[in-house]
Design a protein around this nucleic acid. Structure first.
Length: 308
DNA sequence: TGCAGTGTTGCTTC
DNA sequence: CGAAGCAACACTGC
């Protein structure tokens, strides 16, 4: 489930692999006629105009805003990718699978000789950028929730998915007072839900919100209006710690996340709360047990003893 | 076997 | 207006 650390890991990988590569061709099995998602490649007519603008272009830079990936091209356009729940990008020597690969066509559309890129999830590759040197960037997305679109690079602020984003959760100059002011805009909602609101602060998802609240000793049902300044400072500090820890572990592969080289992240071995229902709380001297409870339609995992 | 659960976002409904 | 529910999709686990 790509959240800020996973998206940043992917963006770092893109900058290590695809910069200055020229796009030779595009393939996708997502576009269908008259898809309701206009301005995404899922819509057949958009896919045709997308190809016209992107084929022949050279990649100059990859960036992240919240959970969005921006791939800038030299020709003034930027490819916008959101991985949603199960998406991930991988780079390598891929080719269309053939009968000789010994696998049923329907379960293995693209193939790579590299052992680390031979992943069962590869049967969910739905979008492929092939470069002039015959390497490829593939987008793998089991549930097809991901979105791919195109914007003019100097008008990214107009893109629907970007214009309403709050400040980035990893922005260096984001003091606790700023976070307090932003999150107080939803002062009577559960803090768990408020942390997930991308318009208030961008990049936090369900995994890291659980970890942040566990670290800052705050119960997920507390509301912003109840928090003391000490707790706001703690929340701010914990946000940085949890996200940097996720980054240091190369992201979280609880679900199907892979980095650009096809490797798992390791953060799911380092959780203190997320999906640890029934486990003893790891907090020093805490006798609590992790419990699960639905908050604002999402599952929250927390320790009912030290999170108050 | 069947169905709840899994995350993210945006749209619809009340 | 805001909150709640649902759709997009596929697979896992009970």
């Amino acid at each position: 489930m790509p959240e800020l650390p996973e998206v940043q890991t992917t963006v770092n990988g893109l900058n290590e692999t695809v910069i200055n590569k020229k796009i030779q061709s595009l393939w996708s099995d997502l576009p269908t006629k008259n898809h309701s998602r206009k301005n995404e490649i899922k819509d057949f007519s958009f896919w045709n105009s997308f190809k016209k603008k992107v084929v022949g272009a050279t990649i100059t830079l990859a960036q992240r805003r919240g959970k969005n990936i921006l791939i800038e091209l030299h020709n003034g356009f930027t490819i916008l990718i959101h991985m949603k729940m199960t998406g991930h990008l991988m780079f390598g020597n891929y080719r269309r699978a053939t009968k000789d690969d010994g696998r049923p066509k329907h379960s293995w559309t693209w193939w790579s000789e590299a052992p680390e890129l031979q992943d069962p999830f590869n049967r969910f590759i739905h979008f492929v950028v092939t470069f002039t040197d015959e390497t490829s960037l593939v987008f793998c997305d089991a549930r097809k929730f991901g979105s791919i679109s195109l914007v003019e690079s100097n008008k990214t602020y107009l893109a629907k998915s970007l214009k309403s984003l709050g400040p980035d959760a990893l922005e260096d100059e984001l003091p606790w007072k700023e976070i307090k002011t932003r999150l107080m805009k939803q002062k009577s909602k559960a803090i768990k839900s408020v942390l997930l609101d991308q318009t208030l602060i961008a990049g936090i998802g369900n995994i890291y919100s659980d970890e942040i609240l566990w670290l800052s000793n705050i119960h997920p049902l507390r509301t912003p209006s109840e928090l003391s300044d000490i707790e706001w400072k703690s929340l701010t500090n914990s946000t940085k710690i949890a996200l940097h820890k996720g980054l240091a572990f190369g992201g979280d592969s609880t679900s199907d996340y892979r980095n650009i080289y096809g490797k798992h992240g390791e953060f799911h071995h380092a959780h203190n709360a997320y999906q640890l229902t029934g486990k003893k709380c790891n907090k020093k001297n805490c006798k609590g047990t992790i419990q699960r409870r639905v908050v604002g339609g999402r599952s929250a995992h927390f320790c009912g003893i030290h999170q108050k």
